[in-house]
Design a protein around this nucleic acid. Sequence first.
DNA 1: TAATAAAGATTACATTTGTAAACAAAGGAC
DNA 2: GTCCTTTGTTTACAAATGTAATCTTTATTA
Lengths: 139, 139
Amino acid sequence: MAEIQNMTKAEWQVMRIIWTLGQATSKEVIDILEKKTTWKTATIKTLIIRLQKKNFLVADESNRPYIYKPLIAENDAIHESVNDLFDSLCCMKKGKAIGDLIENSNISKGDINDLILQLQNKREKASYEVECDCLEARL
Amino acid sequence: MAEIQNMTKAEWQVMRIIWTLGQATSKEVIDILEKKTTWKTATIKTLIIRLQKKNFLVADESNRPYIYKPLIAENDAIHESVNDLFDSLCCMKKGKAIGDLIENSNISKGDINDLILQLQNKREKASYEVECDCLEARL
DNA sequence: TAATAAAGATTACATTTGTAAACAAAGGAC
DNA sequence: GTCCTTTGTTTACAAATGTAATCTTTATTA
């Protein structure tokens, strides 16, 4: 019963900091988020606690202040959330949606090259048309 | 005060049907969703009402049964929600996230070609590196 | 036209989320 | 060792969301 829960937008901001630092104390998280947001200290603490309850973070409580560490890799979390969103889109629209993301994202030359290769590869086995499944009997 | 609200996952399912049909009666929506989900009739009606309150749908009430029509285009809604999600990702990770989406999505040959062209174009002006902004003082 | 069926409106209630104050315990300063 | 100051814990409360029952009105049919 792995109890997969989702991370909310606010919680995600906390995780980003901890992922980037590798681990962090609550003070570190609070200092950074107080610059990025208007959240009060207590709010940020609440988010940290909820992330622990949801098993996205653990606290190393052997010393004070506690050190919080991620229990989920950033890449895995990103994978989860982007695919989760795409799962609810009409499948005919996914190509364009990806185009929209490319348009609006700052991507490095290296990543662009990788994406082009990946697409060239995918093109081989791609079908000419993708059918809309919006009215079909399963999500 | 355009009061932009968001569409929840459940509401999104209702919209997909109405977008695909162009317009629909509650019965049409209910018939389809009862096959896709375990939702009760009343639940689906609630979703329709909330979508009206959020200004994503209008009812043409000149005849019974009412005919519900979208007030937002599917493409616009998709644009909103995918970009909204990407806004909260570490910008270094966006390229890979797009790769992940491409991997997991069924995209037509035509769309793949468009994406390749788009990327080739974007490559010209792309920088070699994208900096992580996760610890910076604004979201 | 009276009874029934269908569609729409109102109300409900638990859980999650955003947002935070208040309280308690541990560590450091004097 | 006592007093502040961090840091962590508990409690709070409104809004949003998932999920639905019930009540009311309109339409259909006998």
